[in-house]
Design a protein around this nucleic acid. Structure first.
Lengths: 159, 159
DNA sequence: TGCAACATTGACGTGCGCGTTAACGTTGTT
DNA sequence: AACAACGTTAACGCGCACGTCAATGTTGCA
């Protein structure tokens, strides 16, 4: 009971969902759609999520919420990333080095495309940001004119 | 026919949709949902979109695509902005100055909230960006190791 | 005046991303 | 052994944001 130092590295779906701020349904759905590789299970069939699974879940949330990608798009992206893990796993095994290199190159390309996508979005967002900032300035001017109109004498108005 | 200088400032729904890269259905839908104020019409009933309408349509697209807001949320935001235009329109008419000022203040607040939302998103995006950039670096390392393994003798490999 | 191109209003259909319920099995504690 | 808490699959449902007809009307040009 006094063992809070072992946070049980494998989470059941309930905790996993809580920590990811998603629902169990959502996790199962992502699995169903192939976004999550089927997690390991307990003997009884209960899902057990590894820290790696949790990371992936978080990536999905980021890609969805921040960038607004559809699950289908996200799936593609993650598949590209998987290449990296695959290569890592196979690293010390026989295998065609050139083939791996090719995979790594395409994975790199995909990642760069994602980067460019993000950059494009950020540019657009910052221009939107600017126009909003302009608006605020205009409101400020408006309000200034109002206060001038209402208080023709600038007295002790000092906060 | 040789008059390309008069781009006809009022667009029918077809052109309007094309220019906004949306469908006619979508424009009607936005109108139906109260995101667009009903545009003016020709005698026969055909919708005519003013440049202002077009701007608004574009704003909607930005808010939706860039920030991922739902149409309901966007509606609220635009309503807040409308206050500004309303005030401008009423500017020279009788009217309670204080009431207008109040409206302007709340509109300002809403706009600032939007700004903060954007800033939050941009922060998260840039941290995501960083992690992606890291990934690219790792791929580069991988590929470097590959090329070292395949070409033990650094010869005329100079691009 | 006729005709193609464009528009109108319904109304139903659709894909996505889950929510919800039902019927049932598992786990861990007492 | 019993029981609450937690999990399982399967199936149906749902709201959003439109797509897609269908039936009809309008515009503008030959």
């Amino acid at each position: 009971m006094a063992d809070a130092s072992k946070p049980e590295r494998f989470l059941q779906i309930g905790e996993a969902a809580d920590r990811a701020s998603l629902t169990q349904r959502t996790l199962r759905y992502y699995e169903e759609k192939g976004l999550l590789n089927p997690p390991s299970r307990m003997d009884g069939g209960f899902r057990l999520y590894t820290p790696d699974d949790m990371e992936r879940i978080d990536r999905i949330r980021q890609l969805k919420e921040l960038l607004g990608f559809s699950l289908a798009e996200i799936k593609e992206m993650l598949e590209a990333e998987d290449v990296r893990l695959q290569i890592k796993a196979e690293w010390r095994r026989d295998a065609d080095a050139e083939e791996k290199a090719e995979k790594a190159r395409t994975a790199r390309e995909v990642t760069i495309q994602q980067l460019q996508l993000i950059d494009q979005k950020m540019e657009k967002m910052s221009s939107l940001r600017e126009s909003l900032a302009d608006r605020v300035r205009k409101y400020d001017e408006m309000l200034l004119r109002f206060s001038e109109a209402l208080e023709p004498e600038p007295a002790s108005t000092q906060s």
